[in-house]
């Protein structure tokens, strides 16, 4: 896997806004961002309303994904370029999700919405009309997705990479600091996890650091390249960003994203938890 197959620059994106077979999609949790202006021609994917099951805590199923992409006018052989706010957290989550359902050619816009804005490139409020397709999804590729039992078994066995901020890892915060600190679950992290905040993989403008910098980052953090890796955060979107780095940019073979992440793990009864901020 090389960078040019999975990432596009804002320059490339601007040159290919009208290229046949290239579809841009903005993925955000806060959909007002799209309404306020988006990359010309980009369709909207709503992380919460369209990619999550409304009843169970899970994704939309295969047929739901097929219906969604068909309605958005995305075809199986399209090159889908995903971007969004938050340094591409939700775009990376959608990237992982597209891979889970077997989409062949999906890429991230390096730097996402932030880089596009900082570059001063065009944003429009015009919503594109795309003809519906008949999209066919694969069964979920579970080699990319970790579930809770596997995570508990991975303690001291596989690399567990906690990509949240140091304060969340240490149990001092339960959520990123732009959200109220309210949650019922326990604070802390999964024992034996290393803390490599997702933000260390990105430059201030939201673009990914170079492969050399990224390799050094995980090496210094003690990631054992000979072992499988599971990445997690709070709800699985920041860890999609790090999953993208480890598997798609650095080419690690066996990397899973644990989308249950801390909101699930920190609420499980009886599992081991490490919390350095609790004085025993």
């Amino acid at each position: 896997m090389s960078r040019e197959n999975v990432l596009v620059s804002t320059e490339w994106a601007e040159r290919n806004l009208n290229t046949e077979g290239v579809v841009f999609a903005e993925v955000d949790e806060d959909t007002t961002a799209y309404d306020g202006g988006h990359i010309p021609g980009a369709v909207r994917l709503d992380w919460k309303e369209e990619l999550q099951d409304h009843v169970r805590r899970d994704f939309v199923d295969r047929s739901g994904f097929e219906k969604l992409l068909s309605e958005k006018g995305i075809a199986n052989d399209d090159t889908v370029v995903l971007y969004g706010g938050n340094n591409n957290w939700f775009a990376a989550y959608a990237y992982w999700y597209f891979k889970l359902y077997g989409h062949q050619d999906v890429r991230l816009l390096d730097g996402g919405r932030k880089k596009w804005e900082l570059d001063g490139r065009e944003l429009t409020k015009e919503v594109p009309v795309r003809e519906a397709t008949t999209y066919t999804a694969s069964e979920q590729d579970l080699s990319l997705r970790a579930f809770r039992d596997e995570v508990v078994e991975a303690i001291n066995v596989k690399n567990l990479v906690d990509v949240r901020s140091p304060d969340e890892f240490a149990g001092r915060l339960l959520a990123p600091a732009h959200l109220p600190q309210e949650a019922a679950q326990r604070a802390g992290h999964i024992p034996s996890a290393i803390n490599v905040p997702w933000s260390k993989a990105a430059n201030e403008d939201g673009t990914f650091k170079s492969d050399e910098e990224l390799r050094a980052l995980y090496e210094e953090a003690g990631l054992d390249g000979s072992r499988p890796t599971i990445a997690y955060c709070r709800i699985g979107e920041r860890s999609s960003h790090s999953w993208f780095v480890l598997r798609e940019l650095l080419g690690h073979q066996d990397v899973k994203n644990y989308d249950g992440s801390w909101t699930e793990y920190g609420s499980l009864v009886g599992v081991p938890v490490a919390n350095p901020s609790e004085v025993s």
Binding site: S165, P166, L173, A175, P176, A177, H178, P197, S199
Partner: peptide, 23 residues
Amino acid sequence: DSGGEFTAEVVSAGSGDFRFYAA
């Protein structure tokens, strides 16, 4: 944070306002 580590990011409102929930 005090170690220079990223903790959160928001986009300022039209009024310039921003807000974080910290420790």
